[in-house]
Design a protein around this nucleic acid. Structure first.
Lengths: 230, 230
DNA sequence: TTGCAATTCAAACACTTGTATGAAACTATC
DNA sequence: GATAGTTTCATACAAGTGTTTGAATTGCAA
């Protein structure tokens, strides 16, 4: 079982280096140097560089999706099987934003890795992201229950815009900070979540404007994967 | 002046290949093969691979920004120096969306190149994008004139969200099409622009909900640059 | 035509990349 | 303590990368 130490060391080193310097700039030799293991260990434990990256991303991605679904389930239970639209959107964007922004998560390797993955989008990560559709459909279903009259297309657009605002905020937080010269507070994650949710609700309702809040957790460290996917 | 033929051939070949296969997958040898020129020609005419990419992106980016500012100027003139907020947002997101989406631009190399640049974000392109701040400030200024009472932070968030929705739509149009199983019409660009503008206006006004339209042009082919930047 | 600069070309350079190999070291079971 | 399976290691491999070189070729002006 000492192999687990090597495996974990590689995962940790890779996540750190990718978070710091991006996928294009980090070689396997950099990773094994950081992890203090042999070069061949990566291929021995993961098969290839791409599979290493995939496992890294799947782990974090699974954690976020789990949080999302938990929050959604909680909201639906509280509403007796029908969650209000703002709670649904909160469950959708809250975990992502909370996982990547905020002063506590700021220095976190996991957060910076997910930000990097959101910016660079290398092939193994893109492959995984493409399978997220089923996961999102669960939110569409909940939205349909919350707004029975609405056209499906409007629901899709609403979900799409909600993801747009949260991902773009993560991707471009530096630029927004610079553009606004600090006037946009990117450390107040709750306020950002509320803002994204409130705009998304407006997009869906066509301009009436409610918006409350809902709970959310943070990400967990790496557990070993059974080569499952998203 | 036969050098210009080589230069142009390289630019055209590079844009096509990058658009088709992405930056990570295309080598200089691929480009010179497509362009039917010698390998050394790239470094002779552009200095380096990165400078070639930069010139490619700057050309298209400049064209979009020119369109944006034209539309903004037109809207402000029509309003006597004070354009309505929806016209400002239309000027901001219209050229970008129209340049990348729509059935006519669909097969366009320029459009596909810009989509690729929006997805992959390679270092020379990121460097250029980082200088877009000054350009965006002009829209902030116009928005400030249109909504004198509003907090600056709200204006920045509104502009940020408008860009979020348009860029995310460009980046993830495939996914949205698949998720919605064709129910979101990604060929009706005008409708998309209106939708993005209308949501952005709601985000800025807090839920009253107007939204009209404004004009826009298409991109031009490559002219020679004088090594200027954005 | 001559001369000179700009351009093209084939070839090589210098280096990095992910991956494979096969022997050595380790670990746990009998 | 011998054996079988797992893990580590140094090293080599094969291929591909952007860039440079220096000689040919071209185009244009005097």
């Amino acid at each position: 079982m000492s192999s687990d130490r090597t495996r974990s060391a590689i995962l940790a080193a890779a996540e750190k280096l990718y978070a710091d310097r991006g996928f294009g700039d980090v070689t396997l030799r950099d990773i094994v140097a950081e992890a203090n293991v042999n070069l061949a260990a990566v291929n021995y434990h993961f098969g290839s560089k791409d599979e290493l990256i995939a496992e890294l991303f799947v782990t974090r991605s699974l954690a976020t999706n789990r949080e999302r679904l938990n929050a959604l389930k909680l909201a639906e239970e509280k509403g007796g099987g029908r969650a209000p639209i703002d709670a649904i959107l909160h469950a959708l964007v809250g975990p992502t934003l909370r996982g990547c922004l905020g002063p506590d998560r700021e220095g976190s390797t996991a957060a910076r890795f997910m930000i990097r993955a959101s910016i660079e989008s290398v092939p193994p990560i893109r492959r995984i992201k493409n399978r997220e559709v089923d996961h999102l459909r669960k939110f569409i279903a909940a939205m349909r229950r919350a707004m029975p009259g609405r056209d499906d297309a409007d629901l899709y657009w609403g979900l799409h815009f909600a993801l747009a605002m949260s991902h773009h905020t993560i991707r471009e937080k530096e630029r927004l900070a610079r553009l606004s010269e600090g006037q946009c507070d990117l450390n107040d994650v709750d306020a950002i979540v509320d803002r994204v949710v409130s705009v998304s609700v407006m997009a869906l309702t066509g301009g009436e404007a409610p918006a409350r809040k809902a709970p959310s957790k943070v990400a967990a460290p790496h557990g070993r994967l059974t080569r499952q996917d998203l």
